[in-house]
Simulated scan of single mutants.
Amino acid sequence: MKILIRNLDRTTNEDELKLLFQEYGTVQSCNLVTDKVSGTSKGFAFIEMPKVGEAKAAIKNLNYKTLGENKIRVKKAEPKAADTPED
């Protein structure tokens, strides 16, 4: 299951996120979204956890948890809306 983490402190890194989510199960991947020019965090990330039960436990327990200076928001990532071709 793909999870979206928002409202991250700009100093949070991927290793911190992985450790936080590994408390609830296997983390398949972690992608901290960064600005292409400055390389700094944009304040959100995606985590993939292969087991749905573990992912749901992580979402339930980590939503609104304080990480760094911010209360993070954690939820299931929605698939990107497909671009519909115009006729």
Rank of each mutant, 00 (worst) to 15 (best):
87 D>Q: 13
83 D>R: 12
9 D>Y: 03
35 D>W: 03
61 N>V: 00
67 L>M: 10
69 E>K: 15
76 K>M: 11
70 N>E: 11
82 A>N: 13
6 R>P: 05
84 T>H: 14
56 K>R: 11
72 I>W: 01
69 E>W: 14
54 E>W: 07
31 N>A: 09
80 K>T: 13
23 E>Q: 13
12 T>Q: 02
31 N>F: 10
31 N>W: 02
58 A>P: 10
78 E>V: 02
26 T>S: 02
2 K>Y: 09
38 S>D: 13
27 V>G: 04
15 D>S: 14
83 D>Y: 12
34 T>R: 04
63 N>G: 01
46 F>K: 03
5 I>V: 13
8 L>K: 04
28 Q>I: 13
80 K>H: 10
1 M>Q: 11
80 K>M: 08
19 L>Q: 15
13 N>M: 11
83 D>M: 13
63 N>Y: 04
59 I>R: 01
4 L>P: 01
44 F>W: 10
20 L>P: 02
60 K>T: 04
17 L>T: 03
39 G>Q: 09
13 N>Y: 11
61 N>L: 09
55 A>M: 03
32 L>I: 14
75 K>G: 05
1 M>W: 07
56 K>W: 08
60 K>C: 11
51 K>L: 03
72 I>A: 07
5 I>C: 01
84 T>I: 15
39 G>L: 06
5 I>Y: 00
67 L>Y: 02
10 R>Q: 11
74 V>N: 02
72 I>T: 05
60 K>N: 12
28 Q>K: 08
71 K>S: 06
23 E>S: 12
21 F>G: 01
52 V>G: 00
